[in-house]
């Protein structure tokens, strides 16, 4: 299984437009596959929903706070 790796060519390779992207880690590890893709935003959303609706709780231990707008 001998591939010819061309390190010199690699370093000088003409500028490709391929974007900088994090190394692939399989689709499950994609940022858009996370259980919570934006924890900061969902904290705000959850806070609003808990304070406006009669139910609360989920698969987390939640924080405190009144949340009674």
């Amino acid at each position: 299984m001998k591939l010819l790796l061309l390190p010199c060519v690699l370093l000088l390779a003409a500028c490709s437009s391929a974007p900088v992207q994090p190394w692939e880690r399989g689709n499950l590890a994609r940022p858009d596959m996370a259980w919570d893709t934006d924890p900061l935003h969902s904290a705000m959303r959850d806070h609003v929903n808990v304070s406006k609706e009669g139910s609360s709780g989920g698969l987390n231990t939640g924080g405190g706070g009144c949340g009674c707008y």
């Binding site: 987390n60 924080g63 405190g64 706070g65 009144c66």
Partner: peptide
Amino acid sequence: GYSGENDYTAFNGSIE
């Protein structure tokens, strides 16, 4: 965690 308002104070702790 801690949460504070003029009229409200909350402390919380958790283990996961």
